[in-house]
């Protein structure tokens, strides 16, 4: 804008007494009315989340209380607890639920056990240059496609594949392969929060404990570990929830095994029983809710 045109406009004068508002009336209104600004900002994203997601979740709960007419395969919209009764009574659902939880627990325990020493080395032992390099090394596989990673394990564990060739032998496609693959895929998600909370532990704290005569093991156990709980919990929630919600890995490397997700998928699609699928999906929701409420006290949720 040229200087002359700016000077002719009332808002651009340097004399404070003559200075009027430069902004347009609409903008002035927005500036005065905080609630108007806020509702303009909030309306679109909130409407999206409510209409797409909250409604869908609520509908899922309601659908789980419906049933499917076995003759017409139309959805019968009268309330019934039949689906949940099926889940409790039928052995298959109990077995699959326990199997899914077992795999999720195994993956979580393995990942935390591997992540702790690695995160400790990265945060407290490695030099800053090595540390930066290691962070990149942990982050890079996160960007590699999920399916590519599962596929690569299918190849490694296949008959005549790398695992066979090394002499360790391949466990074959089955639950062990599922645990290995899932632990592999979610490991970075567990390392990163633990690493982040370790970085926040001041070195001086460890030095002070050492100077006061505490042996390394005691320092780790009674000073470092308690400070890491939020990070560990955050990482554990990630790997647990991600494993529980996964049914593709078990399709690819799990042999004939099924997890909860498979049952949901089959009932939503081929078996054409959306109400039962919705009821099965309530299992992971309830598990996560119980877990999150139990964990809330530790304050780990602030780190998510």
């Amino acid at each position: 804008m040229s200087a002359t045109s700016a000077d002719t406009r009332p808002g651009r004068t340097t004399d404070p007494a003559l200075r009027g508002p430069v902004a347009r009336p609409g903008s002035r209104l927005l500036h005065r009315m905080v609630w108007l600004r806020l509702s303009l900002l909030l309306s679109a994203p909130l409407a999206w989340m409510l209409l797409v997601y909250v409604v869908a979740l609520a509908a899922l709960l309601i659908t789980s209380l419906w049933s499917v007419d076995s003759l017409t395969s139309e959805i019968d919209r009268s309330w019934t607890f039949d689906n949940f009764r099926t889940l409790v009574d039928n052995e298959v659902y109990r077995t699959v639920t326990l199997r899914t939880l077992g795999v999720a627990v195994a993956v979580t325990v393995i990942d935390v056990a591997i992540a702790l020493p690695i995160a400790f080395y990265m945060a407290k032992v490695a030099t800053p240059r090595v540390r930066r390099m290691l962070v990149v090394a942990v982050l890079t596989p996160l960007w590699a496609s999920y399916l590519v990673k599962v596929f690569s394990w299918r190849v490694v564990l296949s008959e005549g594949g790398l695992a066979d060739w090394t002499g360790f032998g391949s466990p074959g496609y089955g639950l062990t392969a599922v645990v290995i693959t899932q632990a592999y895929i979610w490991l970075p998600y567990v390392i990163l929060p633990i690493f982040a909370s370790l970085e926040r532990v001041p070195d001086s704290l460890l030095e002070a404990a050492g100077d006061l005569g505490a042996p390394s093991g005691l320092v780790l156990r009674s000073i470092v570990l308690p400070l890491l709980v939020p990070g560990i919990v955050a990482g554990a929630i990630f790997s647990f929830s991600l494993t529980m919600g996964d049914y593709i890995t078990v399709n690819i490397v799990g042999g004939a095994n099924q997890m909860l997700g498979n049952l949901v998928y089959i009932n939503a699609g081929a078996a054409n029983n959306l109400p039962l699928a919705a009821a099965i999906a309530m299992i992971p929701i309830v598990v996560m809710l119980v877990l999150l409420t139990a964990i809330r006290r530790t304050g780990a949720l602030d780190n998510l």
């Binding site: 869908a56 899922l60 929830s241 991600l242 529980m244 919600g245 997700g261």
Partner: peptide
């Protein structure tokens, strides 16, 4: 945060 199948089946 919810398991993938939950978001999937809900939608």
């Amino acid at each position: 945060a919810l398991p993938g199948v939950v978001t999937g089946i809900a939608l």
